[in-house]
């Protein structure tokens, strides 16, 4: 079974991987917030954010192919929503591009969403590809995210792989019986597959709950937290918040 998703490469060894998840969460979320709130014409500031992230990718030894592949996820949204903007928006002067007129304001809006979503998506990739998902959830819990939420999500993480295995088995069985769907009225098979998946998931949930009760489950989970928020973590948070902040302030002048 092949399921290379979620926290792929989070098991590598690097200074980034060894950081306390809390430091990565706080630092990278701050970086995203700083980036999103930067006015689009401060080009130098965006160059600084990207530069910082590329250095962090180098430090974390993530394969570039993986990082670039993951970054493609914002592409559909930009293509559908934003790419036509230069042709529709008016104002701010215009350029002629063959038969089309391109407005400067529209170009600026397109640049704005493209660079901000790129910087932000890279920040989240840095977070999720250097932190095993259960550790990330424990970090969130230490940051006072409701315990019920993080516990449900850690169970979800456990069962997503089981259920996608289940689904792949069903899909293989379907395809080996010669199913090839091209039209919506052939979707009946998909409906039955999803219904079967729901029933199996729900019944598995009941079984898991019974098994947990039998092992003394009382609504809470006790886990250990192996990280320590030390000087390295403090330095990391300072780097990824103060450097972009300084870049942004200096870019104005």
């Amino acid at each position: 079974m092949k399921h290379a998703f979620l926290d792929e490469y989070s098991g590598l060894q690097s200074p980034m991987h060894r950081l306390d998840p809390r430091a990565k969460l706080v630092g990278l979320v701050a970086l995203v917030v700083i980036c999103v709130s930067t006015p689009p014409d401060l080009y130098a500031a965006f160059a600084a954010y990207l530069g910082l992230e590329l250095i962090l990718v180098l430090i974390s030894r993530l394969p570039w192919k993986h990082v670039l592949g993951r970054m493609l996820i914002v592409l559909p949204f930009i293509l559908v929503v934003a790419v036509f903007l230069p042709f529709f928006n008016k104002g701010g002067g215009s350029y002629n591009l063959g038969p089309f007129t391109v407005s400067a304001h529209g170009l600026l809006v397109l640049w704005n969403v493209a660079i901000k979503s790129t910087v932000s998506v890279l920040a989240v990739i840095l977070l999720s590809s250097t932190t095993p998902f259960p550790e990330l959830l424990k970090g969130l819990e230490k940051l006072r995210v409701p315990r019920l939420l993080t516990t449900i999500m850690s169970f979800m993480y456990r069962y997503i792989f089981v259920l996608s295995d289940e689904l792949q088995r069903m899909r293989r069985a379907r395809d080996s019986r010669g199913w090839s769907g091209k039209w919506l009225w052939q979707a009946k098979v998909i409906g039955h597959m999803i219904a079967a998946l729901f029933l199996r998931s729900y019944e598995r949930g009941e079984r898991v709950y019974a098994a947990m009760l039998a092992r003394g489950y009382d609504g809470g989970l006790r886990t250990i937290y192996l990280y320590d928020f030390g000087a390295v973590e403090l330095g990391f948070v300072a780097l990824v918040t103060l450097f972009p902040l300084a870049a942004r302030l200096l870019a104005v002048g």
């Binding site: 997503i160 996608s164 769907g181 999803i194 729900y202």
Partner: peptide
Amino acid sequence: SVPMLALCAAFVFAAQMLNFPVAG
């Protein structure tokens, strides 16, 4: 709630990975 909601959420997550045909 922990096991039931987690399984239902994992179900929606997995079901979203299944493409259905629209046209052609």
